[in-house]
Design a binder for these strands. Structure first.
Lengths: 148, 148
DNA sequence: TTTATACATTTGTATATACAATTATTGTAT
DNA sequence: ATACAATAATTGTATATACAAATGTATAAA
C-alpha cells in the first residue's frame, strides 16, 4: 500500500502528514473490509461491537452510558443504535428498577447465536487483514500506535 | 493510550484483534482532532482534502472521477461534497467543453486564501498528534502500515 | 416542601455516506 | 444512421453521525 500511489500525487509528502494519511488509508481499508463481511448479517460494525460488549458483561445488564464508554467510536446517539438491534431481536431493553432514569440493555439468546456466527467471520477477516505481519511486527505496531 | 483501559475490558484481547481495535482508536482520535481544528472554518476534513487536491492541480481543472481517485475516503457522492464547497465560494464548477459528460472543478482565489489559513492550523495539529514520535519511529510506523 | 442542580436518555436537525437507479453524453459496431 | 454499450455525473433512499435541545428522574440545598 504505497501512499503516494494511492492518492495519486507526484510530490513527496512530509513524514508527519504522510503518517497520518497512511493511517487514514489503512483504517478505511480495514473498516470497509469488516463492514463488508458483516453485511450478510445486516449489522454495522458499531452494532457488532455493542453485541460484543453486552456478551462480555455475562448477563449483567448495561445501561447506555457504560455502553458508550466501552465503544470504540464514541457516539452521541447510542439510543438509535440500540433501537436497530432491538427490532432485530438481538437485545432487550428495560427501565432500570432502582433508577428509572437508566435503561438496562441485555443481549438475547438469539443475539448470542448470531454473534457466534459473526465471530468466526470477523476472526477470519482480521487474519486476512494482518496476514503480512509477524507477531513481532504486530507487537511493534501496537507499541507505535500507543504513542498517539 | 492503553487499549484495554480505553475500552474498559478486563480480559486480554488477542494480538490481531487488539491491533485492529488500536488502529480504530487512534484513527478516531486523529480524525476528531483534525475535524475539531477545522470546525471554525466550517469545512469537513473531506472538504479540506478536496481543496488540497484542487490546489495541487495548479489551475488544471479536475473532474469528479479524478477527484474521487485522489481522495482518502473513496466516497460515492463527491457531487454533494463539491456542492458544499460551491456555496461557500471555494470552488468553481463548469461543464467540460470537450466532453460534456464531465465537469471541471477548480479552486477559487477565495478558496486558496482560506486553504492557506487551514494549512497552518492542520500542520500544527498534525505536529501535536505525533509529538511523541521520533522521525525514526514515524518511518517505522509507515513501514508497518505499509503491510496492510 | 419548593427550588435548583445533576444525571440518563431521548429527540430534532443538519450533514454525511453507501448503494442503487437514473440521466445525459459519447463511442462503437453493424 | 441506428442501436447498443460505456462513461460521467447526479439523484433518491436509507442509514449513520454530530451536536444541541428537550424530557424525565433523582439528589441536594434552602
Amino acid at each position: 500500500m504505497n501512499v503516494e500511489e494511492i492518492i495519486k500525487t507526484e510530490t513527496k509528502i512530509p513524514l508527519k502528514s504522510r503518517s497520518i494519511i497512511h493511517l487514514f488509508l489503512v483504517h478505511n481499508k480495514v473498516n470497509d473490509h469488516l463492514a463488508k463481511v458483516l453485511k450478510p448479517f445486516e449489522v454495522s460494525l458499531q452494532q457488532f461491537n455493542v453485541l460484543r460488549i453486552l456478551r462480555g458483561r455475562k448477563g449483567k445488564p448495561a445501561n447506555l452510558s457504560t455502553l458508550n464508554e466501552r465503544m470504540i467510536n464514541k457516539m452521541s446517539n447510542t439510543t438509535r443504535l440500540v433501537d436497530k438491534l432491538l427490532v432485530k431481536g438481538y437485545v432487550d431493553r428495560a427501565v432500570c428498577p432502582s433508577n428509572r432514569r437508566k435503561v438496562e440493555i441485555t443481549i438475547t439468546t438469539e443475539g448470542e447465536k448470531v454473534l457466534r456466527k459473526m465471530d468466526r467471520i470477523i476472526k477470519h477477516a482480521e487474519e486476512e487483514l494482518v496476514h503480512n505481519f509477524s507477531s513481532k511486527e504486530l507487537e511493534q505496531l501496537n507499541l507505535l500506535l500507543h504513542k498517539f
